[in-house]
Amino acid sequence: KLATQLLVDLAEGCHTHHFNSLLDIIEKVMARSLSPPPELEERDVAAYSASLEDVKTAVLGLLVILQTKLYTLPASHATRVYEMLVSHIQLHYKHSYTLPIASSIRLQAFDFLLLLRADSLHRLGLPNKDGVVRFSPYCVCDYMEPERGSEKKTSGPLSPPTGPPGPAPAGPAVRLGSVPYSLLFRVLLQCLKQESDWKVLKLVLGRLPESLRYKVLIFTSPCSVDQLCSALCSMLSGPKTLERLRGAPEGFSRTDLHLAVVPVLTALISYHNYLDKTKQREMVYCLEQGLIHRCASQCVVALSICSVEMPDIIIKALPVLVVKLTHISATASMAVPLLEFLSTLARLPHLYRNFAAEQYASVFAISLPYTNPSKFNQYIVCLAHHVIAMWFIRCRLPFRKDFVPFITKGLRSNVLLSFDDTPEKDSFRARSTSLNERPKSLRIARPPKQGLNNSPPVKEFKESSAAEAFRCRSISVSEHVVRSRIQTSLTSASLGSADENSVAQADDSLKN
């Protein structure tokens, strides 16, 4: 292990032709098999893994070397290190390495390699500790012929580059190093199909959405987006994914797998022009299946994007999809995704031109529960009313008269009656009930004795009459309010007539 670390330190600071010789020695160290011998017992696995620490030291050392060589000349050094790393990870899946030390190597290698970024000039870069990406002036992410390196360097940008540029090249004859992302992409596909350690798979799935944002990485080298989509959909639809995973937390289920895969599918929607129609349908189907899991909100957001990006695919699945959405409970976490999906859909009339009455009724059935102001915040309630109004205007004229009683009944049950079921009123009724029952229970537990009763009969009569009056008032709060309003209006009217009579009498006395 110490000798391997010494080789790594020497290679990191070497800029001459001896660098390749040092890498040859490190490569021989990495070539050791990580498969346990067949006769190895389970209690000896930890000791055997400790004997392979030099392999881990070599791989982690290459990660440090690549981070240094990416910004220094010659660029061919970075290319050689990158290829060695990718080849080593491929061996893991070729020979099915399952030892804990092998999983640790893959975890740290993917953690580093999935941080690679590219700008519009195809320059590769890595983020620093502050998250700012520094791009290399010597390494690009696409394949290029050595003699055409300078031509590639002087080509115009596709868009303004992001991030601070690296140091300027030493001279005009500098050759750019090619670090094609397709090599890593193929290893990522192998990981999605064969990885057995949940920690490694979770890391890859968590980092892929951010990497897919940099389309330069994908399009400048032959990366098959179709295969990526197929691998992701197979993970969700195939039963073998959960069987092969180990190291998963207790209670791990298909729902947890959906939570990890759906963000990658959402990021892949922007590549729909490069996906086969069959793959697009598979993607939409997987998102529909996710509606029954805890990732339902993410799936609804993804389907909203699909309705804009892939209208030809979503239009066929939309009638059944809208009916499925009615089975989702009206909760605060689902309110905004569902209502925004319906609001977006209302502005795309070509998608729902074939809707029948059942689909329009489903839209109103989804939106009406969110009009309850005692359960949802003001934004959700306003958005629900907006969706109902928009869809009522957009639905066909023959359907409107049939939906009017349905909508008014839903609004009455969710908006008007919600004020009668407020917690304050319920607590008031509970308190009044307890007050009504309390005197009775006290009389049963403690019967009054005439000799020891010091309270006069008049006081008892007053208290009983007050309790009886309170019971009468607490029967119905709404009736009490109505009666008080009527009494107030009658009182004001009587006072007004009394004032008029007094004024008339005063005038008569003055005349006399």
Rank of each mutant, 00 (worst) to 15 (best):
S49H: 07
S49Y: 05
A50G: 09
A50K: 10
A50W: 06
A50Q: 10
A50C: 10
S51G: 12
S51V: 06
L52T: 05
L52M: 11
L52E: 02
E53V: 07
D54C: 06
D54L: 00
V55D: 01
V55R: 01
K56L: 06
V59D: 01
V59A: 12
L60Y: 08
G61E: 00
L62Q: 02
L62G: 03
L62P: 01
L62E: 01
L62W: 00
L63M: 14
L63W: 03
I65K: 01
I65D: 01
L66S: 01
L66P: 00
Q67D: 04
Q67M: 03
T68G: 07
K69T: 02
K69F: 00
K69Q: 04
K69S: 03
L70W: 02
L70V: 05
L70F: 05
L70N: 01
Y71C: 03
Y71F: 08
T72C: 14
T72S: 14
L73N: 09
P74N: 03
P74A: 03
P74M: 02
S76V: 07
S76G: 08
H77P: 01
H77L: 02
H77F: 05
T79F: 12
T79Y: 09
T79L: 09
R80H: 04
E83Q: 11
E83M: 11
E83H: 13
E83T: 10
E83L: 07
M84H: 02
L85F: 01
L85A: 04
L85I: 14
V86N: 04
V86G: 03
V86E: 01
S87V: 05
H88L: 00
H88M: 01
I89V: 07
I89W: 00
Q90F: 08
Q90A: 14
Q90H: 11
Q90K: 10
Q90G: 07
L91D: 08
H92M: 01
H92T: 00
Y93C: 00
Y93S: 00
K94E: 13
K94R: 10
K94C: 10
H95S: 09
H95A: 08
H95T: 03
S96Q: 14
S96Y: 11
Y97F: 06
Y97H: 02
Y97L: 02
Y97M: 02
T98E: 09
P100E: 11
P100D: 08
I101T: 04
I101Q: 02
I101F: 04
I101N: 01
A102W: 02
A102L: 03
S103K: 10
S103M: 06
S103Q: 06
R106W: 00
R106K: 02
L115T: 09
L115I: 05
L116H: 02
L116C: 03
A118S: 06
A118R: 02
A118W: 02
A118H: 03
S120K: 13
L121T: 11
L121M: 11
H122M: 03
H122L: 02
R123T: 02
R123D: 01
R123N: 04
R123Y: 05
L124D: 02
L124M: 10
G125T: 03
L126D: 02
L126R: 04
P127Y: 04
P127C: 05
P127L: 06
P127G: 04
N128D: 12
N128I: 05
K129G: 14
D130K: 08
D130H: 09
D130A: 11
G131V: 02
G131T: 03
G131P: 02
V132R: 11
V132D: 11
V132F: 11
V132H: 09
V133R: 04
V133C: 06
V133H: 07
R134K: 09
R134S: 07
R134F: 05
F135H: 04
F135S: 03
F135N: 03
S136W: 01
S136L: 01
S136C: 01
P137A: 06
Y138D: 02
Y138R: 03
Y138E: 02
Y138I: 07
C139I: 10
C139H: 10
V140F: 08
V140M: 06
V140S: 06
C141N: 02
D142C: 03
D142E: 07
D142G: 05
Y143K: 07
M144A: 14
M144P: 10
E145M: 11
E145S: 09
E147A: 13
E147K: 12
G149K: 07
S150M: 12
S150F: 10
K152F: 10
K152V: 14
K152M: 12
K152D: 13
K152Q: 13
K153R: 11
K153Q: 07
S155L: 11
S155D: 13
G156L: 14
G156F: 10
P157V: 12
P157T: 12
L158S: 15
L158V: 12
S159W: 10
S159H: 09
P160M: 07
P160T: 12
P160G: 12
P160E: 10
P160K: 14
P161E: 14
P161H: 13
P161Q: 11
T162A: 14
G163H: 11
G163M: 13
P165N: 09
P165M: 12
P165R: 14
P165V: 11
G166Y: 15
G166F: 11
G166C: 11
A170T: 15
A173P: 12
A173I: 11
A173N: 13
A173L: 11
R175F: 10
L176E: 08
L176V: 13
G177M: 05
G177I: 04
G177D: 04
G177H: 15
S178F: 09
S178R: 10
S178Q: 09
V179R: 02
V179T: 05
P180V: 02
P180T: 04
Y181P: 02
Y181F: 10
S182M: 05
S182N: 08
L183C: 08
L184A: 09
L184M: 08
F185G: 02
F185I: 03
F185R: 01
F185K: 01
R186V: 06
R186N: 11
R186L: 04
V187Y: 00
V187Q: 05
L188S: 03
L188M: 08
L189C: 06
L189F: 02
C191L: 01
C191H: 01
C191E: 00
L192G: 00
S196C: 09
S196M: 09
S196L: 06
S196E: 10
S196Y: 10
D197W: 01
D197T: 03
D197P: 01
D197C: 05
D197M: 02
W198V: 03
K199M: 11
K199W: 06
V200D: 01
V200L: 02
V200P: 00
K202W: 03
L203G: 08
L203P: 02
L203C: 10
V204P: 00
V204Q: 01
L205P: 00
L205Y: 00
L205G: 00
L205M: 04
L205S: 00
L205C: 03
G206M: 13
G206H: 11
G206R: 12
R207S: 03
P209E: 08
P209M: 06
P209R: 07
P209S: 12
E210C: 06
S211Q: 09
L212R: 00
L212A: 01
L212S: 00
L212E: 01
R213K: 10
R213Q: 12
K215W: 01
K215H: 06
V216I: 07
V216Q: 09
V216Y: 04
L217R: 02
L217S: 03
L217A: 04
L217P: 03
I218H: 07
I218Q: 03
F219C: 13
F219D: 10
T220N: 06
T220A: 05
T220V: 02
S221R: 02
S221D: 03
S221E: 03
P222D: 07
C223A: 03
S224D: 10
V225P: 05
V225D: 00
V225L: 12
Q227N: 10
Q227L: 08
L228F: 05
L228S: 01
C229A: 09
C229Q: 03
S230H: 12
S230Y: 05
S230R: 06
L232A: 03
C233G: 03
S234V: 08
M235F: 07
M235G: 01
L236W: 06
L236R: 01
S237A: 12
S237W: 11
G238N: 13
P239M: 10
K240S: 12
K240W: 09
K240T: 13
T241R: 08
T241F: 10
T241H: 07
L242R: 05
L242A: 08
R244I: 04
R244P: 02
R244V: 04
L245K: 02
L245C: 03
L245V: 07
R246G: 08
R246L: 06
R246Y: 08
R246T: 10
G247V: 05
G247S: 08
G247Y: 09
G247E: 09
A248I: 10
P249K: 07
E250P: 11
E250W: 06
E250S: 11
E250K: 13
G251V: 04
F252Q: 02
F252R: 02
